[in-house]
Design a protein around this nucleic acid. Structure first.
Lengths: 195, 195
DNA sequence: GACAGAAAAGCACGATCGTACGATTCTGGT
DNA sequence: ACCAGAATCGTACGATCGTGCTTTTCTGTC
């Protein structure tokens, strides 16, 4: 890998961390340069606009997400166990991978009313994520763990609600019960979906 | 009411709307001045710092929230009907009251990792809100609509998850099924809580 | 209708924002 | 070891940020 590519990745890794804490607009070029020990212009040369930086930061987040959530989920056995793995992987991602919690939660709320490439990219990501959850839940149906008439979109909707609720409860309220409440809610959802 | 007080309220009403779309940091004094037809310094004189403006904007949001959600809920009959009213009032608030959806959703995610007075104020608001939900659910228990052993915190957690899921589904994804999915999820939760 | 105090505007400041461009330093292939 | 091109830096720009200070305009009271 070339030198430029290496530093670019280092920059983006730092950027993902910052964006998770202060959002994609709070992510500023000068500050990112300082925290990576580069000059503003040297850093800027890697991207050619702030928007490009934001988009590439999002993309870098997606890569990490794939490694930490998608991959482990797919290597778990099909069915309800895979659903559990999905959820637990996400919890690890949200809690341990980034200092400021899931970047997609932050980005989604930040851009949900601001049209543009960032919003579009976020929407694509989140639709893929929702499809993925639905597909995983589908394996639990075909394995006979979940009801055959389970509405997969409905299941996905509720599950995503739990993720947001956990983010809110753990990160804003710092509720020590957050994890317990989340897992209990998951069990409730799994039971309600069981065959 | 004095002239100053009147314009201040007009400013804050505008500010709440802007903050709901672009967040409390995206809310900028110059832009707020322009959209209210005032000079920057004339507007600034009402608050004495940006942070004070943000805090007062949040407070103004809370007042509106009280009028549109808390009050209607309390005037509904105790029990499950009051729970339903709470949820429907919130849906109206989220959908129709502000151009950018619930300001507290936006603020919560924006400040969950940034210590300071804004975060503190948000936490207080959200704790009050959670307590309120739990209390309302409690009336459904004492009216015999909900199970006596229902964990009110757990119920609140799940319900808030639905609200976040709706925000995400309706506002970012613009899913036309968002409202149906949300109401169906509510019914599921009510059934699971029923006596 | 005059007058005191409140409200709003005008103007300026230092800081930081995103971006441009030319100069410098470094890297990798020969 | 040299050299072309990549990578990085220095510096500067116009715009906008939050905030202060002074001046003008408006309001409400006698």
């Amino acid at each position: 890998m070339s030198k430029g590519q290496a530093t670019k990745e280092a920059i983006l890794d730092e950027a993902v961390g910052i964006a998770s804490r202060v959002g994609f607009n709070g992510l500023t070029i000068g500050q990112l340069a300082e925290s990576t020990g580069m000059s503003k212009s040297g850093l800027f040369a890697h991207f050619r606009s702030k928007e490009a930086l934001q988009l590439e930061t999002l993309e870098r987040g997606r890569e990490r997400f794939t490694d930490l959530v998608i991959r482990p989920t797919l290597s778990a056995p099909r069915g309800v166990e895979r659903v559990r793995t999905l959820f637990e992987s996400w919890l690890t991602w949200e809690t341990a991978a980034l200092e400021g919690g899931c970047v997609f939660v932050a980005g989604s709320v930040e851009y949900d009313d601001q049209p543009g490439p960032m919003r579009d990219a976020l929407v694509r990501n989140q639709q893929d994520w929702a499809d993925f959850i639905a597909t995983v839940a589908g394996t639990a149906v075909s394995e006979g763990h979940f009801r055959a008439d389970l509405d997969l979109q409905q299941f996905t909707f509720t599950l995503q609600g739990l993720m947001y609720a956990y983010h809110h409860s753990a990160r804003l309220l710092r509720d020590p019960r957050a994890l317990d409440l989340t897992r209990a809610a998951l069990e409730q959802l799994l039971e309600a979906s069981a065959a």
